[in-house]
Design a protein around this nucleic acid. Structure first.
Length: 305
DNA sequence: AGGGCACCTCGGGCGC
DNA sequence: TGCGCCCGAGGTGCCC
């Protein structure tokens, strides 16, 4: 990977493969870049990005004249607080924000432009067009989709081992799809689920009833430490992730499992397995992350491997 | 309930 | 060697 993949990027451009750490990095950057700026005019160039209100002209009108006060985050969603209105934004796969001068040429895949009264512009670009924006009256955002469906926020004090087990422990799915489900724990995506399971030495196809108390504790800690380490490093950079200061996210250099299929496990040297699980590329070490059946009672004969 | 697909585009890899 | 096609990448919503 290294620098070879980062073909071309704006110095003030934010995001790539956004999971919680990347969104958190974007949040911090936007807090520095746009808080205090007043919107003069909004231009929606791709209506499908705007999920609420239905009328994109109304979206533009509702934001004109407002000032960004604070950028917050819930899971992978940015919650942008303006005076009298809330903008909820999800970057999905490749959404990114960048601050530009009005005179700068509009780059391809620019779908929403927020022009400020000081002549600068916040531009939303999204090659895949998967990202979403919702507008809410203050307070309404918490009781409406998409924020009202989100589960535990993993990097806050209330994300305890007990809360983690309470929300997942009784379920029958495999651990990977459970951890990807934003209704239970929010913020983990494909990269950090693989990393957390690797860190905790838990096979992605294990089910909750097979985890020991010790494994729950290890996994809980792995989720927290994997995400917080990545936040500390400014997120991962699979392609060209750049934060507002123009620095590459550095966490990708620390990925132990994701994207390492066929390469040796850094713990034991076994070749990292790459499979598809729940429709997602899944990376694990079959030596460190053994499949175990549910704890019932182990038949005497099954000494097995 | 859980799996599979649609959404969307680009780039890489492979075949001719 | 070059061009063109196909598929994989993944967060989420929806359908079966």
């Amino acid at each position: 990977m290294g620098t070879s993949g980062a073909s071309r990027y704006n110095q003030d451009e934010v995001s790539d493969m956004p999971e919680l750490p990347e969104v958190e990095t974007v949040r911090r950057t936007l807090n520095e870049l746009i808080v205090g700026k007043t919107i003069q005019h909004v231009q929606v160039r791709l209506p499908r990005i705007i999920q609420k209100p239905d009328d994109t002209v109304l979206f533009e009108e509702l934001l004109a004249g407002r000032t960004f006060q604070e950028i917050d985050r819930r899971g992978k969603f940015l919650r942008m607080v303006l005076d009298g209105i809330i903008l909820v934004s999800h970057l999905r796969m490749e959404g990114r924000y960048g601050l530009y001068e009005q005179a700068e040429p509009v780059e391809p895949h620019t779908h929403v432009i927020f022009r400020f009264t000081d002549g600068s512009e916040l531009r939303y670009r999204d090659v895949r067009q998967f990202g979403t924006m919702h507008l809410f009256a203050p307070g309404e955002e918490w009781t409406s989709p998409p924020l009202n469906k989100l589960g535990l926020e993993p990097l806050v004090d209330s994300f305890t081992l007990e809360a983690f087990r309470a929300v997942l422990g009784h379920r029958s799915s495999k651990m990977k799809p459970l951890l990807l489900n934003q209704a239970y724990v929010t913020g983990l995506g494909n990269i950090y689920v693989d990393e957390a399971l690797y860190s905790a030495c838990i096979h992605p196809e294990r089910t909750p009833d097979s985890l020991t108390k010790q494994e729950w504790q290890t996994l809980h800690q792995a989720v927290v430490s994997t995400l917080s380490d990545a936040v500390r490093q400014g997120g991962s950079s699979i392609k060209s992730y750049v934060n507002g200061q123009g620095e590459m996210g550095m966490f990708q250099q620390q990925l132990q499992a994701y994207g390492r299929g066929g390469e040796p496990c850094k713990r034991c040297g076994e070749v990292i397995t790459k499979t598809v699980l729940a429709g997602r590329g899944t990376h694990y070490c079959k030596q460190c992350q053994r499949m175990k059946r549910a704890r019932k009672r182990v038949p005497v004969r099954s000494k097995q491997v």
